[in-house]
Design a protein around this nucleic acid. Structure first.
Lengths: 228, 228, 228, 228
DNA sequence: TATGAATGAGCTTTCATTCAT
DNA sequence: AATGAATGAAAGCTCATTCAT
């Protein structure tokens, strides 16, 4: 029969590349399903069985792709961080003064946090992680914060941002942005772009230096210099 | 002797009062210890044994004061909410235009979130609660949000706040404030008062209406009117 | 004042007898409440708190009257046994042949099992008891069984009861009687007396020797003789 | 080769069948071990650890076969009920007058109650069950009682059973039969068949209508007619 | 005599993880 | 690569019992 012949000719082993691709696809599918449930129910209340059931496989099958529950969580954090770092890198490579770049970072952050993997970085608790993994995650978070602070400091230095405490301002901006993850809904009234634009505008409108006056600005100049 | 006479007159229900006070003190001690551990380690990773051990009692003794782990969590949320509601009520009873009251709310919120019970309302996950308790907590959170939005709307109406989307602005402000709970340390460089002042200033400096122009403001006027 | 004088004359201590009586009353009240709950809910599902609550006292107060939960159960069994033994003794002291006395025992048993304390002997599980207490209870149950068997054997011997296996017949009768405890309700359609009469009639109507024939009867004569 | 060919033809679901059979066997093994211990020690005094230990597995392994302790108990009741219903159905389908069928039911009941699963229906306390499961069990018990009463009523109607109160007689018979569970031992002097025969004879010998007299019988005729 | 508080022992249940197949 | 079965560890909770007052 033709079918049998055709089958017989086909190589009995799936090509290595294909296999690896299939494997990676499943790996990612696990990650996405797990993340969805983690965000919906929280990490502890999500069992491996649920994740597996959502993928129509069984619990132990997950162990083919991850060494354990924590590694799944690490995977989520990791993908989220990549998103932030990639979009931040794009902004930082752009031209522009501190204020402009700060706005860019805000837009970038808002866009990323509107995605599941972006949201998980701040919405999942990194204390579930082992010390090692936690150190990695915290490092990434610090880098994100540092990026904000750096542009603020730069903006103060280049005169585009008025004098302010870069640390506190960073906390304020990051906090407002992180809040998005708690209320944003993909199909809600506000699109991610709208939110990004609006937050970029609102969070910097008070920071823009109106006119280069010397008075207040000097106050934080030293701090900016120290931390830059 | 005076002592004996005085004693004879003392009302017989004093011991009851003492007992009740002692009981309430222990009730609160459990709550504080539990909250401390919940904030440090997360709710699920905190066991009743740990809470008990921290108080030098045994696990079942906790059941003299609470019906179960969830009720302890409810108690934490509840105390936190009381703090918010009390401090908000004080602000709302003050005189002043929308902008001034909004600043007051921000200060109030920042002060409260700098306390453990204040922080827990946003930092603990209300999905651990039973549907009933969760409804209560969510109701309280909604009221807090509503208070912000109300003053923003009022401020737009009275001309003290420039035209903006009250909902988005509320989210922005609340997010920034909630962020405080994640990094504030009682003995850190920034005092709660400083933070409160700084956030009140920064979060409203862009909102203050410079001069009553008609253009942009009309955009949100209708929304403000509708929601007031 | 008269009141004070009258009071002053009264002996400050309750007379010993009165005290003991009060104590015994409370002891019995505990027993009755416990028994009620044991029968309603089962021994294990009944907590000491429930018993205490039913008496408007607190749990540890029970320990003034009983050394522990098991002793309460022992008390229930014990009172029930007394009822059986007293009513059986009355029957056994009566005059009459085996059949007549067997009917008397049945009536007596039926009357007793219609009471809470009577019912508990068969409806509560004596395996909850310590080996010692259990031995006592089992001894009492054996004595009750022996009383039935003895009259059956006597009846066979005196010709009033037809030939039958005394052991099996005892089990049959006792079983039917014990069943009463499972469905009898004090305020139900059937009074305890009716039940007693009816069971006495039904359970013996097949046993009554019609006419002294030798055939069948000899079959169990030897058994009867051996066991008498 | 034949072997290979045969193998190729074998349906691929054989292993599934095997697995399912093994699973069912274990399910039943759990049930039997649990029942044995429940009957020996009572439900509450039997722990899941004991059941597991008796099967050389660990406690949580039980959860592969049952959702919890109560479901094990439900399984015991359920199997017992099936035994009763099957053996009763066989009797009810037989030919014969009411008296003959009543004897058949007694024999059937006695045979079943001599087995562990039969005994458990009356010896385990259905108050341990959830309301739903309890309703099922009680329904089954009621059907058993109804079967007895129905044949008694039928017997009175067809003249094979003398006038009597069907309800009380049912209670008497069922009680005597249930008693068997309390003293029957599989390896004892009395075989289940002997007991069944003897109980069928003794419990009906007084009921058999000697000669159709009108007097007494009319007394319960109406009841019989009403209830038939 | 009675109480509030505390304890120790024990139980059912859950779940991430492992292993033989 | 995937599964069913099993396990170890641990958690929350209950309750009889004790003790200081």
């Amino acid at each position: 029969m033709e079918g049998a012949q055709a089958k017989a000719v086909e190589p009995p082993w799936i090509p290595f590349e294909d296999r690896r691709r299939a494997r990676d696809q499943k790996h990612d599918a696990v990650l996405r399903m797990a993340l969805k449930l983690f965000l919906e129910q929280g990490y502890h209340r999500t069992t491996l069985s649920e994740i597996a059931a959502g993928l129509n496989i069984t619990k132990p099958a997950l162990y083919n792709y991850f060494r354990g529950k924590e590694e799944i969580l690490v995977g989520c954090f990791s993908q989220g961080q990549d998103l932030y770092e990639a979009s931040f890198a794009a902004v930082e490579n752009d031209a522009g003064n501190g204020l402009k770049k700060l706005r860019g970072l805000i837009r970038a952050y808002a866009s990323v946090i509107a995605s599941d993997f972006g949201a998980c970085v701040t919405r999942l608790d990194d204390r579930e992680l082992s010390p090692d993994a936690r150190a990695v995650v915290r490092g990434a978070k610090r880098r994100i914060n540092a990026a904000f602070r750096q542009q603020i400091t730069a903006g103060i230095a280049d005169g585009s941002i008025k004098s302010c405490d870069p640390k506190l301002t960073t906390f304020l901006i990051a906090g407002a942005l992180n809040g998005i993850g708690a209320w944003y809904r993909p199909n809600g009234a506000l699109s991610a772009e709208t939110i990004a634009e609006e937050f970029a505008a609102r969070l910097t409108e008070g920071l823009a230096a109106r006119q280069p006056t010397g008075g207040d600005r000097r106050k934080y100049r030293r701090v900016a210099a120290r931390r830059a």
